[in-house]
Design a protein around this nucleic acid. Sequence first.
DNA 1: GAAATTATTTAAGTTTGCTTAAAAATAGAT
DNA 2: ATCTATTTTTAAGCAAACTTAAATAATTTC
Lengths: 220, 220
Amino acid sequence: MNITNAEENYLKAIFKIAEKENKAASTNKLAEVMGTSPASITDMIKKMSDKKLVNYTKYYGVTLTSEGSKIATNLIRRHRLWELFLVDKLRFPWHQVHNIAEELEHIKSDDLVARLDAFLNYPKFDPHGDPIPNAEGKFTIRSQSPLSDARKGQKYVLVGLKENNYDFLKFLYDQGFKIGSSITLLEKSDYDHTAKILLDGRSEILLGAVVTQNLLVRNE
Amino acid sequence: MNITNAEENYLKAIFKIAEKENKAASTNKLAEVMGTSPASITDMIKKMSDKKLVNYTKYYGVTLTSEGSKIATNLIRRHRLWELFLVDKLRFPWHQVHNIAEELEHIKSDDLVARLDAFLNYPKFDPHGDPIPNAEGKFTIRSQSPLSDARKGQKYVLVGLKENNYDFLKFLYDQGFKIGSSITLLEKSDYDHTAKILLDGRSEILLGAVVTQNLLVRNE
DNA sequence: GAAATTATTTAAGTTTGCTTAAAAATAGAT
DNA sequence: ATCTATTTTTAAGCAAACTTAAATAATTTC
């Protein structure tokens, strides 16, 4: 069966909503995420339900069938592999790769993905620290906690980000943060969740609450 | 102005027809190349004429405007850069890259192309020996002649191919040919244009007329 | 140079993925 | 439990890029 780019995007959106909210995706939420009208969603979802890509219950919401889930996972795999390629090989800053990867992820060739994976050395995480599902669709899980929960004086490694929005990424990029950076917590305020850190043994940086809560680190 | 993927493909087809036949592209020829009906061509060409991408004269044919030519050249640049990436970096055999590059060439990012170009070291030719126009749209010209015109006993370098069809490429790939291969002409028949060559100092190969006429070489 | 063949265009219609506006169902407030 | 507000669906319609069938123009052939 042929899956269009638009359908792939719907599957991905439903997957991400389910992952975040842990429930069926509503028409309105999907419309918001996809940047279309709710009417378009109902329209499209009906067709995708006929194709057995999603389970649709009127006035309730949409979930993925196992077929739909497989396609969504594969799409995320492709997206994240391309993001890593763009950052590691083409030297793009990490806040500039999302839109390009949104296009690259739709290239239809399993061989291409397999070879790209090999070229990048079968990576487990993308440049933002998000896990790259393997060819079987398995995500690697890692231990992590927000920097806001960290202990003063301890040394951490930046492993991920809770938010991937452009401005946040650009801010971090400009400060010199990247996945794998070492972060030593010099000072912290339990009152307002700000912190002073030493980044990669080089620069002392003051961070506000929003930043410390969205940086995911692991010990040592 | 927004150019769709379909429009880009029309521009490329018109460019290639003009290059090969040295005249305006006819509706039927375009239909054949694009794999659509002649009626679709007329339909589309009219819209593209309104957009000043092509010059269209009813019942006569289509040529590119300078704007259209610029876009077509850029598309060829992108196509050939991606083909080189696929062969050199992802280790695809050269007969398997065309279709994937047909998709990759439509990714809309000038920055991506510039970085890919740099990553590949500003190459002048793709894996099939076709010239890659530079960022300004300039093609590199090189001296070349078909192997069928070569002289017995002389040593040559394979620089290009007259035909890029799948079966020809696969045949050559299976024999071990690639751009840059050394070819020594051991025997040749002026009667039927067959030849016996030494490829890369390793293997002696007998070639038929079609092959010798479609291999482009230069001396030494 | 008229008739026949071929090439091209026009006309009408299709599919995909979207839109707006109106109708219907659900959920929330009192 | 009813009224109101919100969400969702239905209906009608649009643009892009196709299709087939019919009409028209150009080219060949005799």
